[in-house]
């Protein structure tokens, strides 16, 4: 049972945090070097024109008026129009088609990580200090020590360059022209019934998902192992064994479910980190998601895009953390106290 009181309390705690986040994002535009009006008008524009643009943007209003307007618009996810990257296009619309790209990649990666991470961690805990345990522990530690911008190129080198099994970059072969419906390419191609395009999209997704998966598998298996080890030592586990239950049944029936609780937390937190890491994964694999969007927006000084992207990331991150907390309280009702 999810307690209503807990969820409401947790939501109320979010308000000051989100308020602070929005304030920080508002500050980016005003603290960053360069004059936004000059960026839009162009370097050669006349002083008069720049002044006109500044008035249009409302940059001449008192700072608190601008702040109030920003908060009102941010609630509606409006961040104005892009200065440079897609000049004149509302940031909201740009994000609408870039966000699914990033989420799709992260979700497939996370799925791979969960699929392999949980059994590996479980095995390590059951056979603690066996050779397989040591190997997977060191492997997992190596997994979190290798940055995505090195493991990515290594996979590209092996699977794309040497073996030629998977394409090195992009989302789909250039011969396909898929009009986005949702922006989730493996979904769109299937809905349109274009199976050849689906196959191409899936092949393109494999390497980025694998890189993310390796990292997330390392983290998840570590947490699964240590959490299971802790549970195995609990009194109720000893009781179950003393009752004459086989130790394998005890572990799976009583231990696994309880050990899963902290793992859920790690999966949630990990997903947030993945969103941040998307900046790197997308750069390595040449995927046009919100990660690469943010990087180029910072490079050219397209601040509405920077603001929109950063707020979007922070919002998603906060949402995931909220979901983790609520799931946690569902799995372990004691957490509320």
């Amino acid at each position: 049972m999810i307690s209503k009181r807990f969820v409401i309390k947790r939501l109320l705690l979010l308000v000051p945090v989100l308020f602070g986040v929005a304030t920080f994002v508002f500050a980016i535009l005003h603290l960053a070097p360069g004059d936004p009006a000059r960026v839009i008008a162009g370097q050669r524009a006349s002083e008069e024109f720049v002044r006109q643009v500044r008035t249009e943007l409302g940059l001449n209003d008192p700072i608190w008026v601008q702040y109030g307007r920003f908060l009102l618009e941010a609630v509606q996810l409006e961040f104005g129009n892009s200065y440079q990257i897609q000049k004149g296009t509302p940031v909201k619309q740009i994000l609408r088609y870039k966000l699914p790209v990033t989420l799709e990649m992260a979700l497939y990666g996370q799925f791979l990580g969960i699929l392999f991470g949980i059994p590996v961690g479980l095995l390590g805990a059951i056979k603690q200090d066996a050779i397989s345990d040591h190997v997977t522990r060191i492997g997992a530690l190596a997994g979190i020590s290798v940055p995505i911008y090195w493991s990515g190129p290594l996979l590209i080198l092996l699977f794309a360059q040497v073996l030629g099994w998977f394409p090195a970059s992009g989302r789909i072969a250039s011969t396909f022209d898929i009009n986005p419906i949702t922006g989730v390419i493996t979904f769109d191609t299937l809905v349109r019934g274009n199976f050849a395009a689906f196959e191409s999209a899936a092949m393109h997704l494999f390497l980025p998902a694998a890189v993310i998966g390796i990292y997330s598998m390392a983290l998840i298996s570590r947490m699964m192992r240590s959490s299971m080890l802790e549970v195995i030592r609990q009194d109720y586990m000893r009781t179950a064994r003393a009752k004459g239950q086989g130790s394998k049944i005890t572990i799976l029936k009583h231990g696994f479910r309880n050990a899963l609780i902290p793992v859920v937390t790690v999966i949630g937190i990990q997903f947030g980190t993945l969103l941040g890491g998307a900046v790197l994964t997308e750069t390595v694999f040449g995927i046009a998601g919100i990660g690469t969007l943010l990087v180029s927006a910072i490079q050219v000084g397209d601040y509405p895009v920077v603001q929109g992207t950063v707020l979007m990331f922070a919002g998603l991150f906060t949402l995931v953390n909220l979901l983790v907390d609520v799931t946690y309280s569902y799995l372990d009702p004691r957490i509320e106290q």
Partner: peptide, 10 residues
């Protein structure tokens, strides 16, 4: 409230 790399970029 920000993913760490994102905050660094901001």
């Amino acid at each position: 409230a920000f993913p760490s790399l994102l905050l660094a970029l901001a």
